[in-house]
Simulated assay, not measured.
Amino acid sequence: YTLPPPPPPPPSPKPRKGFASKNIERDFHTIQRFKKLITIDPLGIKKKWKGTDVCNYPGFKCATVPDQKVTALAAADFNGYFFGGRDLQLTGFLDQLPDLSIFHANSNNFTGPVPKSIGTSRVRYLFEVDLSNNKYSGGFPMSVLQATNLTFLDIRFNSFSGSVPAEVFTLDLDVLFINNNKFSQQLPGNLGSTPVLYLTLANNKFSGPIPRSIGNARNLLEVLFLNNELEGCLPYEIGKLDKTVVFDVGSNKLTGPIPLSFACLEKMEILNLAMNKFYGPVPEMVCDLPRLANLSLSYNYFTQVGHECRKLISKRILDVRMNCILDLPGQRSAADCAKFFSKQRTCPNERSLNYIPCRKGGYSSSFETSDQRSMAPAAAPITYNALKPHKLRL
Rank of each mutant, 00 (worst) to 15 (best):
R373L: 15
P5I: 10
S370I: 06
M142Q: 13
I382H: 00
N106H: 03
S364W: 08
Q344K: 15
G44C: 10
R359Q: 12
G208S: 10
F160L: 12
T170Q: 14
L3K: 14
F262N: 04
S261L: 07
M285L: 11
P283R: 01
A386N: 02
R122D: 06
G192I: 01
P329A: 03
D154G: 01
P235L: 09
F152E: 02
K205I: 07
R156F: 02
N190T: 09
C233F: 03
F302V: 03
S261N: 09
E229M: 11
I45Y: 05
G250Q: 02
D53F: 07
F19W: 07
L37Y: 05
K46C: 14
L387G: 02
N385E: 00
I317G: 00
Y384M: 01
I102S: 05
P15W: 10
K253S: 11
P9S: 13
L37E: 07
L126A: 04
R345Q: 13
T346P: 01
S352D: 12
G51Y: 09
C324Y: 00
K22N: 12
G362S: 11
I238F: 04
I356V: 15
P381K: 00
G306S: 05
D172Q: 15
K243M: 07
S296F: 06
Q304F: 08
C287Y: 02
L191V: 07
L387I: 09
P42M: 06
L187P: 01
P66W: 10
K36F: 09
N180Y: 02
I382L: 11
F103N: 07
Y81I: 04
D242C: 10
T64M: 13
V282Y: 01
N276R: 07
D288P: 06
T2R: 13
D336C: 08
Y1H: 13
S184Y: 03
L94P: 04
L94I: 11
G59M: 10
E167Y: 03
K22H: 14
D174K: 15
L94H: 08
F206V: 04
N252G: 08
R291Y: 04
V245P: 00
H29I: 10
D27W: 08
K36L: 15
R351I: 13
S159K: 13
P141V: 11
N181Q: 14
L153Y: 09
S101E: 14
P377I: 15
I40S: 12
I118F: 04
F78H: 06
N294R: 09
N181R: 07
V249Q: 03
L230D: 00
G59W: 06
F34C: 05
N294L: 05
E128M: 12
V168W: 02
D53M: 08
V245F: 13
N216Y: 05
H390E: 14
I356T: 09
C358V: 11
G80Y: 04
L3V: 11
K48W: 08
S193V: 05
F183G: 00
G59V: 10
